[in-house]
């Protein structure tokens, strides 16, 4: 084994029974000031961030021995498919349930920093309110219109190619990573501004998904119109951070370009079709 290899493997090999530090940005509620608190955690094997937070909840005492309130966080599936546990870990946004402590803090005394996402209002500690993200999905009517008073029968056939493209897009779990990393997406606690503030990459991609669906296509024009206005697809500044941080590897920048193309065609077509 060369020296480099030795150094690398020892850097990666987690120390069993070690104690690490969790530095957490805490906040008691909306509008309350934030503060940092650090906790010492004895790491169990295979631990992830959530299991560490559970330890903190069971024994809410800071590293310097002060009793405090249990840290609050949001989670659901614990297998990176619901998106609820998204937070900023060591400065980058990701899911905390799939974040393994062995990777982030393999050594004795290593520290991991946890912050709530900055683009959504904090409910408490690491738990944020992602309502705007879901509002964005309503803005682009991210659904297939099948509600009605009678049975619509089978939908049209779809090509395997289109299916394959749509499958990838359908994996979005509305986690908000793409929004957290986007320089054009800024925190907006005022819900009345959500119709005109930047909609974000996830909703643009969902508009593409449902515009491709043989039945969902019926609302394509409305989706494109919603994306043509303020806060729509044109507000994207092409930093392409979204695609870098998406845990589902959704080709968000392709979706943005695809919606750009559809918007171009739609705008020209409807200009000539105007009555």
């Amino acid at each position: 084994m060369t020296t480099t290899q030795a150094r690398q493997s020892s850097a990666r090999r987690p120390v069993p029974g070690r104690t690490i530090r969790l530095r957490i940005l805490r906040c008691d509620g909306p509008g309350k000031p934030s503060r940092w608190e650090t906790f010492s955690i004895k790491v169990e094997s295979g631990a992830n961030i959530i299991s560490c937070l559970q330890q903190v909840a069971a024994n809410p005492v800071t590293a310097d021995g002060r009793a405090t309130t249990p840290v609050v966080w949001d989670s659901g599936c614990l297998e990176e498919v619901c998106g609820a546990c998204t937070m900023v870990i060591n400065g980058k946004v990701r899911q905390s349930c799939s974040c393994l402590v062995d990777e982030y803090a393999p050594g004795e005394g290593d520290q991991i920093t946890l912050e709530p996402m900055s683009k959504f209002p904090v409910v408490r500690d690491l738990w944020v309110d992602r309502s705007r993200l879901f509002h964005a999905l309503r803005r682009v009517k991210a659904w297939v219109p099948i509600d009605g008073t009678y049975h619509l029968g089978h939908g049209p056939r779809e090509s395997p190619d289109a299916q394959a493209t749509r499958y990838v897009l359908s994996e979005c779990m509305s986690c908000g990573c793409c929004l957290e990393a986007c320089p054009q997406y800024n925190v907006e606690p005022d819900a009345s501004a959500w119709d005109t503030s930047f909609i974000g990459a996830h909703a643009i991609s969902q508009a593409r998904l449902f515009n491709m669906h043989p039945t969902g296509r019926q609302l394509a024009g409305e989706r494109l119109e919603a994306l043509a206005g303020p806060g729509g697809v044109n507000d994207c500044g092409n930093a392409q951070n979204c695609v870098k941080v998406c845990p589902k590897h959704i080709p968000l920048t392709e979706s943005i370009a695809a919606i750009g193309r559809q918007s171009t065609v739609h705008a020209i077509a409807s200009w000539f079709a105007r009555g």
């Binding site: 990393a181 054009q184 507000d235 092409n238 930093a239 392409q240 951070n241």
Partner: peptide
């Protein structure tokens, strides 16, 4: 006016594309 609607975050997300966004 458009540029004022964004907030650069190259300190956290040091991707090449993000730098281009900022430099633009």
């Amino acid at each position: 006016y458009y540029a004022t609607t964004g907030r650069s975050n190259t300190d956290r997300y040091r991707y090449q594309g993000n730098w281009r966004y900022r430099l633009q």
